[in-house]
Design a protein around this nucleic acid. Structure first.
Lengths: 108, 108
DNA sequence: TGATAATATTAGAGTTTTCTAATATTATCA
DNA sequence: TGATAATATTAGAAAACTCTAATATTATCA
């Protein structure tokens, strides 16, 4: 009975882990957000730069940035009235690159 | 002018690449689909097994499997009236594990 | 202080996704 | 062949997501 409870516990934890991962994946699984991430790469950029480089509206970019910040994908730094965004964990960049290599190889 | 066209071309290709990657990410960014992938891991399993291990309905699992097959995440093999599913590229397993480690570490 | 620049927020319409329930298909086996 | 097992498909309601347009906030600078 104790063992059963323990197993339940572990399963619950594993499921949390999976649900959480799905959340993170969902946060990056959008063309505009992926474009933001690939533009950022390892540098930090202010919102205006991202707006220019991705070709969407300021409002739209801001909403996508907020979403990714909320989910701890991005972190920010304020400098005067500019906000700089960067990817929190640099490993994410490699991870995305790997995914692109596997499933979406560039045309040769 | 030629250079400009070339750059345009490259940008279009890069964007295709990003859109395509977003599609793939979307295909795995769902709790049930991620649970299927983690259950499969490196083995191949028949639908019924996945239904039992994930605790959803047969119809639901079947729809999620179809979606991932369509997007080349999964491949199938038929044996009599059973269909076996497996992950097409084993690197995906590592990739998901890495994402879990970074963003959703297990409670210690 | 008022104007401006940079960014964030809100509302809501349109679209997409997801699930359930019912049914169809395909293959086996008695 | 008819019953059964395994899987797939379909329709449609409910929920979630995404964009645009308008507006708010925050900080600078003349």
């Amino acid at each position: 009975m104790l063992l059963f409870t323990l197993i339940q516990e572990v399963l619950v934890l594993m499921n949390c882990n999976i649900d959480c991962t799905a959340e993170v994946l969902k946060a990056i699984a959008h063309p505009t957000r992926l474009r933001i991430l690939c533009t950022l790469n390892l540098q930090e950029l202010q919102v205006q730069t991202l707006v220019e480089k991705t070709g969407t509206t300021q409002s739209n970019i801001s909403q996508h940035l907020a979403l990714m910040k909320e989910r701890k994908i991005l972190v920010t730094r304020r400098d005067a009235n500019r906000i700089y965004y960067r990817i929190r964990d640099p490993q994410l960049v490699e991870l995305i690159q790997l995914m692109r290599d596997i499933y979406c190889p560039r045309a040769a």
